[in-house]
Amino acid sequence: MSSVSRGFRGRRRDVGGEEGRVPPGQYVTQDFPVLSAGPTPHTPHDQWSFSVEGAITPRTWTWEEFRSLPSETVTADIHCVTRWSKLDTVWEGVSLDTLLGQADRGGMFVMAHCDGGYTTNLPAQDVLGGQAWVAFGYGGQPLPPEHGGPARLLVPHLYFWKSAKWVRRLLLLDHDMPGFWETYGYHNYGDPWREQRYSGD
């Protein structure tokens, strides 16, 4: 298993400080607040699988197969739309470049489907090129269920509702559709640096 350390941090970063690393309207927290719109699923590894489908050759990995894929250690600042940011979080995960392959996905969209029914939508270009992972480790430990374990999406450059907890399936689409919070008026894209909290922002 390969392990690559990447410094993935918010742009406008000043080395060593918080200055320039906290998007507008956010505050830095040392805690890791648990946000959830429903009960925490506890899917055992032997019942867990991860699939890609839609406009892609369908593929399903068991937990064992998924964990044997090359993984990376990712250090990232994360930004929740409820206004907290957490700096230098350390994750371990499989890059979506590995899961979605090398084909050109320009103009396509990804809908993430999760245990519990949560969904969120992202442009495919935002989850490729070393920008997104399916993370199974946090802080050197297995990702706890309340933070999305066994595995969650990690897309640090967008508000954290896009980093869907308990992700099980990525559906590749040739058109965009709103996910759960996007349906309720949250921004379709969700760039924290442009403060895209709500549709129209």
């Binding site: 607040p33 648990v34 946000l35 959830s36 719109a37 429903g38 009960p39 739309v81 409820t82 509702w161 919070w181 309720y184 949250y186």
Partner: peptide, 10 residues
């Protein structure tokens, strides 16, 4: 569920 971007009632 209050601790989310919105309030969800199930």
């Amino acid at each position: 569920y209050l601790q989310a971007p919105g309030t969800v009632v199930r």
